[in-house]
């Protein structure tokens, strides 16, 4: 499990993002409850938790999509404004769990849209087309092509985004986020639906982004990926932060394992329960072909089937 993480965590590094006491309520439902999280410069922080734990809601609180009911989020010492576009302007960029590219725009145009906050040209300069406009456009193009080069999509710049294969769409989303020159990049399940090779490539890409001095906060279900990648990992369960620490600490924490796999009943021995499950599975063997993939470090689908036990109780 444990592989070479080029850990550069320095406890004294300046915090880039500080969330303190973030609580998000939707009516009576408390989706996120009193979560503190700090991301320091040059750090990759992972956020894990079973489905429905509130990870994406927490993300949305950070990016201004939701205004947290309580608590505050600061970026480089300044409280983040409660508007997504202002958060991006401040220097926090994000990707989405379900890819949200501008499907009918070209790859290049997608990245150019990402440059929006770092360019100033308004309607007038677009209409008058002065030298300033041309210079800014050229600079945007250059930077966008640089980013496409970086993620390896430069030769597909003129393709329409919707025609890209799934893995490349994920990459393009990252490039689009990087185009706003962020200091902190929030990645919401960047490897969901990827095969192991693509996941490896994504890992390399994220390390490369970190090496450019961009702090990264990443939500992921793929444990192997997250424990390889992150300097620190926080685990959210039912809206609350259960544990935070180095991958080793979190990996070894019983509560985390319990949250993902469910706790055995006090009185009932495991063997008996396992037999019960097997019998049930045999009865419905026609239904699921993925029953054999109940491995801890498997792909997303295996993870989901592994967590359904706690899920059902949680909801």
């Amino acid at each position: 499990m444990k592989v070479m993480t080029t850990t550069t965590t320095d406890k004294s590094a300046v915090p880039v993002l500080e969330a303190s006491g973030v609580t998000m309520r939707f009516g009576g439902l408390v989706a996120v409850h009193n979560v503190d999280l700090t991301v320091r410069a040059g750090e990759i922080v992972g956020l894990i938790g079973p489905n429905g734990a509130g990870k994406t809601t927490f993300f949305n609180c950070l990016t201004g999509l939701y205004v947290p009911t309580e608590g505050k989020v600061t970026y480089q010492g300044n409280v983040l404004p409660p508007k997504p576009h202002l958060v991006t302007t401040a220097g926090v960029a994000r990707t989405f769990q379900n890819i949200r590219l501008f499907a009918n725009m070209t790859v290049l145009e997608n990245v150019l849209v990402g440059r929006h906050t770092r360019t100033k040209e308004g309607l007038w300069s677009a209409l008058l087309r002065g030298p300033g406009f041309k210079k800014a456009e050229a600079a945007s193009h250059e930077r966008a092509m640089e980013l496409l080069e970086f993620i390896g999509l430069a030769e597909k710049a003129d393709h329409v985004a919707r025609n890209l294969p799934y893995g490349e769409q994920r990459k393009l989303e990252i490039a689009r986020a990087l185009a706003s020159d962020p200091g902190l990049l929030l990645l919401d399940e960047p490897t969901a639906g990827m095969n192991p090779q693509e996941t490896r490539a994504a890992e390399e890409l994220i390390f490369a982004i970190r090496d450019q001095g961009i702090a990264i906060l990443v939500i992921e279900h793929d444990m192997r990926f997250i424990f390889n990648l992150c300097d620190r990992v926080a685990c959210l369960v039912q809206g609350e932060k259960l544990v935070e620490g180095t991958p080793e600490v979190v990996q070894g924490d019983e509560r985390v394992v319990a949250a993902y796999l469910g706790t055995p009943f006090e009185g009932a021995p495991g063997a008996e329960e396992a037999a019960e499950v097997e019998a049930a599975e045999a009865a419905s063997s026609g239904a699921g072909s993925g029953s054999g993939s109940l491995k801890k470090s498997g792909s997303g689908s295996a993870k989901e089937s592994g967590t359904t036990g706690t899920e059902g109780e949680a909801q």
């Binding site: 590219l101 849209v113 706003s180």
Partner: peptide, 13 residues
Amino acid sequence: EDETAATAMGING
């Protein structure tokens, strides 16, 4: 195309 994604890219919708 996608207003949510656009605002997340810093566009004041």
